Simulated assay, not measured.
Amino acid sequence: MGEELAPAGPQPGLRERKKRETRRRISDIATGLFLTRGFDNVTIADVARTADVSVNTVFNYFKTKEDLFFDRQDEIIEQASREFRGRRPGEGAAALFRRRFFEGLDAGAYWTAFHEGSEAWTQTVRDSPALTARQREIGRRAQDHLADLIAEDTGAGPDDIAPRTAAAMIFAVQTVLIEQIADRKRAGETLQEMREDVYAAAARAFDLLEHGLGDYAARPATGNRTATGN
């Protein structure tokens, strides 16, 4: 990989960098506890004690316990919109997110679940109603944000259903693929064992997204039947 470029603009000062480091340290410690013991079995006091900080310090950085687990939720909410803004000339929304999903698989990106340890993360979420609800909220906010951006970019009117439909379909395809990967990981499959199927499933799902359902799942036509008496 190439050398990472420093972000443009003024860099944070020492105090701000220390605050960020403290925030990340507390979150990392909390996540380790949640994955090991289960989210509902860990208290804020447990996190503070393990991180060697006060409970008030934890709340200074995180408003809720769920924020400790989903410490990157703002990034997740912004991700799809940021990618949409950076799409290539002539690249449609479906093609963009197809390309980005395959790039995520290739890189073992955390948001694809196609990486080692993803089963522990997904199981922790599924075991906690609070985390499950927060994950749905994050997904809804990200989807709404993308829909608003699509509407703005395409000049869609307030009654045009297309932007929200497009955003919903994009998120639905990605969610189904990610959940399938997570389920197979939880069942004990290795990344190598499922790799071919994962890529094939992603291609199939995005084909449907790009080209539409059409006559998919149409009921087979019945042949002509000759009436017979009894």
Rank of each mutant, 00 (worst) to 15 (best):
residue 155 G to S: 02
residue 191 L to R: 07
residue 132 T to W: 06
residue 127 D to L: 04
residue 219 R to F: 12
residue 228 T to Y: 10
residue 207 D to W: 08
residue 6 A to H: 08
residue 217 A to G: 02
residue 104 G to Y: 00
residue 208 L to S: 09
residue 133 A to R: 11
residue 119 E to C: 02
residue 162 A to Q: 11
residue 144 D to E: 15
residue 22 T to Y: 00
residue 135 Q to G: 11
residue 1 M to A: 15
residue 118 S to L: 02
residue 185 K to G: 07
residue 40 D to Y: 04
residue 60 N to V: 04
residue 103 E to N: 10
residue 120 A to E: 14
residue 103 E to M: 10
residue 199 Y to Q: 13
residue 190 T to Y: 01
residue 121 W to I: 15
residue 112 T to S: 02
residue 80 A to F: 08
residue 37 R to W: 04
residue 15 R to W: 03
residue 226 T to Y: 05
residue 154 T to K: 05
residue 208 L to W: 05
residue 225 R to S: 13
residue 59 F to D: 02
residue 204 R to T: 12
residue 90 G to M: 07
residue 128 S to K: 03
residue 146 L to T: 08
residue 12 P to Q: 11
residue 140 R to D: 13
residue 65 K to C: 12
residue 171 F to E: 11
residue 149 L to M: 13
residue 43 T to G: 10
residue 8 A to Y: 00
residue 177 L to V: 06
residue 82 R to E: 14
residue 131 L to G: 08
residue 18 K to G: 00
residue 129 P to D: 09
residue 195 R to T: 07
residue 21 E to Q: 15
residue 174 Q to Y: 06
residue 25 R to M: 14
residue 34 F to A: 09
residue 41 N to L: 10
residue 149 L to S: 10
residue 106 D to W: 00
residue 112 T to V: 02
residue 72 R to N: 14
residue 162 A to E: 14
residue 63 K to W: 03
residue 97 F to H: 06
residue 150 I to Y: 00
residue 64 T to A: 12
residue 14 L to N: 06
residue 29 I to C: 12
residue 69 F to V: 11
residue 163 P to V: 07
residue 25 R to N: 09
residue 191 L to H: 03
residue 111 W to A: 10
residue 159 D to L: 12
residue 123 Q to A: 13
residue 82 R to P: 00
residue 51 A to R: 05
residue 40 D to A: 12
residue 182 A to L: 04
residue 127 D to K: 06
residue 96 L to D: 08
residue 91 E to H: 08
residue 45 A to G: 13
residue 137 E to W: 03
residue 185 K to W: 00
residue 38 G to D: 08
residue 159 D to F: 10
residue 155 G to C: 01
residue 109 A to V: 02
residue 38 G to F: 06
residue 124 T to D: 09
residue 96 L to T: 15
residue 41 N to M: 07
residue 155 G to L: 02
residue 149 L to D: 11
residue 206 F to K: 01
residue 226 T to I: 14
residue 219 R to L: 14
residue 105 L to V: 03
residue 15 R to F: 07
residue 129 P to A: 04
residue 97 F to D: 05
residue 27 S to K: 01
residue 44 I to R: 07
residue 54 S to E: 08
residue 100 R to L: 13
residue 58 V to W: 01
residue 56 N to T: 15
residue 33 L to A: 06
residue 216 Y to S: 12
residue 5 L to K: 15
residue 43 T to L: 10
residue 76 I to A: 15
residue 89 P to F: 04
residue 29 I to R: 04
residue 189 E to W: 02
residue 50 T to K: 14
residue 106 D to V: 05
residue 11 Q to E: 15
residue 67 D to W: 04
residue 108 G to E: 07
residue 69 F to T: 09
residue 195 R to P: 01
residue 158 P to C: 02
residue 92 G to E: 09
residue 59 F to Y: 15
residue 182 A to R: 01
residue 129 P to Y: 04
residue 202 A to W: 00
residue 60 N to P: 01
residue 206 F to I: 04
residue 218 A to E: 14
residue 10 P to I: 06
residue 111 W to R: 13
residue 134 R to K: 15
residue 104 G to A: 10
residue 165 T to H: 08
residue 54 S to L: 05
residue 74 D to C: 07
residue 89 P to H: 06
residue 87 R to Y: 07
residue 68 L to Q: 04
